[in-house]
Simulated assay, not measured.
Amino acid sequence: MGPVYGTQSAYCAYQFAQVLLSNTPHTIKNIFFYADGVYNGNSYTDPANDEFNLVSAWQELSKKHSFALTICVAAAQRRGIIKNNLADRFELTGLGELSESISTTDRTIQF
């Protein structure tokens, strides 16, 4: 739920996912970005050269471990995230996607 920059929430979620996938037999089916978290999928995010690029990091982790990066379409539209500026590997979905993911997995963790 946290923005790509400005709070530690999104970065902590990324670190958690990275450790979970590298050190345990667990898998991730989907990461759903909601509220200000939708900024994690903005392709126009352009951090300074000496800053960690969290958008790219999410994309690489998703590609490496084959899980979906889904963004709440309503929250995204309110914040100016549309199909034209959606980063690669991110997809716009509704809350139904979140509900389905919750019902078909054994754990849901919120950051």
Score class of each variant (00 low, 15 high):
M1H: 06
M1A: 08
G2M: 07
G2N: 10
V4A: 07
V4G: 05
Y5V: 12
Y5I: 10
G6F: 06
T7D: 15
T7P: 13
Q8N: 14
Q8D: 14
S9R: 06
S9K: 07
A10E: 05
C12S: 15
C12M: 14
Q15R: 13
Q15E: 15
F16D: 12
F16I: 11
Q18K: 02
Q18L: 04
Q18V: 03
Q18G: 00
L21E: 12
N23Q: 10
P25E: 11
H26D: 12
H26V: 14
H26C: 11
K29W: 05
N30A: 02
N30E: 06
I31G: 01
F32P: 01
F33H: 01
Y34C: 14
D36S: 10
D36L: 02
D36C: 08
G37R: 07
G37V: 01
V38Q: 01
V38G: 03
V38R: 00
Y39S: 08
N40T: 02
N40W: 03
G41L: 06
S43P: 07
A48V: 05
N49P: 15
D50P: 15
D50S: 13
D50R: 11
F52A: 10
F52G: 02
N53W: 08
L54R: 01
L54Y: 01
V55C: 06
S56Y: 11
Q59W: 12
Q59E: 12
E60I: 11
E60C: 14
E60P: 09
L61T: 03
S62W: 07
S62M: 03
H65V: 00
A68E: 12
A68C: 13
I71S: 00
I71A: 03
A74H: 11
A75F: 01
A75H: 03
A75R: 02
A76R: 02
Q77V: 08
Q77N: 13
G80P: 12
I82V: 09
I82Q: 10
N84M: 10
A87T: 00
D88L: 09
E91L: 11
L92Q: 10
T93S: 14
T93Y: 08
E97H: 15
E97T: 13
L98M: 13
L98V: 14
E100W: 01
S101Y: 10
S101Q: 09
T105S: 07
T105N: 09
T105E: 03
D106N: 09
R107D: 00
R107S: 03
R107C: 00
R107K: 09
T108F: 13
F111K: 02
